[in-house]
Design a protein around this nucleic acid. Structure first.
Lengths: 262, 262
DNA sequence: GAGTGGTCTAGACCACTGT
DNA sequence: CAGTGGTCTAGACCACTCC
């Protein structure tokens, strides 16, 4: 026989799955549940923690425990890369109209709030391995935050690295006040004569660091998806790398792999 | 000022990150930590739960709290699809030699243990939408578990669906005792004249259900990666769909997107 | 059997929310 | 202000591991 807090969690889980408790509903107060199940409040809290870790409920200090609503999910596809490449050579008015994120999500530019900051750093061991340069080589580090205008938490944290020497031919690329750059990184690279041939995306999931949980407003128990995107030019040289952190509870990724015909 | 259990967690986290506590090391007993920090045992346990949710420590009943070792991670790439397609028309001796998982991971067939079971079901609303068939259409449901020979937990739970009518031309495909089928699903489809043109993979992360946590031996607080793979034939018809559940703490996925040249 | 973590009690007081 | 969850105490007893 399962222990008390598991049994209580089972009963509440059942109520939620059966729809007796609907998304947004408040659960009875912890003290009420303690009376009902004839257990102490800490035991009730153990049961509720189980349900929270399963993503079924959400605790709100001073208000109660609520059945969770799913947040707006963000779709990210790998078709965006070809789309962005096609767009990179279009004239500025076309590039201004929409970006890759809007292309993926079907949103308008005005629905999104975007923030960028630039920093100059020197290549460390990890980045030197990726870009095949000596340690200490000057890099441009670009940090991006994107969120819905109507929500407070960003849905992606992006840190992008690029070898500074590659883009110095166009001083506009070194100035963060030019962000958001119409046409994105592929257009930026196009202005210095670089064409991409391939994108690699490395995907893992892990628990958030406390800092990530804070910034993404992640409920405890939620993972982050970590995507490392590396762009290769036509000489098969890594020219740009981005670390992308995405909230696991509201991100969907779609990868399409075409196959050669027999 | 942070509360007591957060402050204790911070100190322990710092010890782990600094390497004073190394992977595999046992932490002092909870009662010892309670003495050291002059707090009650439940407060110490709150601190340890934080670290467990961050994946830094692992609790072992009756033994102690241990700094976590990372488990063997499993790499899954989308290059495997083209590789599997190329292999599908090879003669059986070639197909027997190795499978897509071994191709991705660099392992030998003997390193892996594989289990399959078949079941006949009728199409529900969701599956009917994917395969564009009427509800109630007979489907073959195939369930797969794959694990390392030296570990007890599988690293993938796969449930695959296929419209039965598509594959009835080859009765061998309806018999689970023929698994593992050399050359995989793409070779199976080849035997009934089906060629794939495209694979879509839909990736999300979420907390495991209690059943998944049990089967994958996931420590509490770990997410699962959920991959829904849909295979399309040369008429752009969905011919096979798999739900793949992967442990988030030991799975890496690599997606390569080739770009058309200017 | 000694030592460990797991479950549980019956409270106390604090912090936050909404009226 | 009343009601809610958050933190914390100081124990008790149980279950598991290892010697």
């Amino acid at each position: 026989m399962a222990v008390a807090y598991e049994r209580i969690a089972d009963e509440l889980r059942q109520s939620i799955r059966a729809g007796e408790l609907r998304p947004g509903d408040r659960l009875p107060a912890e003290s009420k549940l303690a009376e009902k199940y004839k257990r102490s409040v800490p035991t009730i809290r153990d049961a509720l923690r189980l349900l929270r870790d399963e993503g079924l409920i959400e605790k709100q200090h001073g208000r109660g425990n609520f059945v969770r609503q799913s947040r707006t999910t963000v779709l990210r596809t790998n078709l965006r890369h070809q789309w962005e490449k096609d767009r990179a050579r279009e004239p500025e008015p076309v590039r201004l109209r929409t970006g890759a994120t809007e292309h993926d999500t079907g949103l308008e530019i005005d629905d999104l709030v975007f923030h960028a900051s630039y920093r100059y750093i020197e290549s460390d061991e990890r980045l030197s391995g990726i870009f095949d340069v000596q340690e200490g080589t000057p890099l441009l580090e670009r940090t991006y935050r994107t969120r819905y205008a109507v929500e407070s938490a960003p849905f992606s944290l992006v840190t992008s690295y690029i070898v500074r020497g590659l883009i110095e031919g166009n001083p506009d690329l070194l100035d963060e006040t030019n962000e958001p750059w119409p046409g994105g990184t592929q257009n930026q690279l196009f202005t210095v004569g670089i064409e991409l041939s391939r994108i690699e995306e490395h995907v893992t999931a892990r628990p958030p660091t406390p800092e990530e949980a804070e910034e993404l407003e992640l409920p405890p128990g939620t993972s982050v998806l970590v995507l490392r995107k590396t762009s290769f030019d036509t000489d098969d040289r890594a020219v740009e790398m981005s670390d992308v952190t995405l909230p696991g509870d509201r991100t969907e990724m779609l990868f399409t792999t075409p196959l050669e015909r027999w």
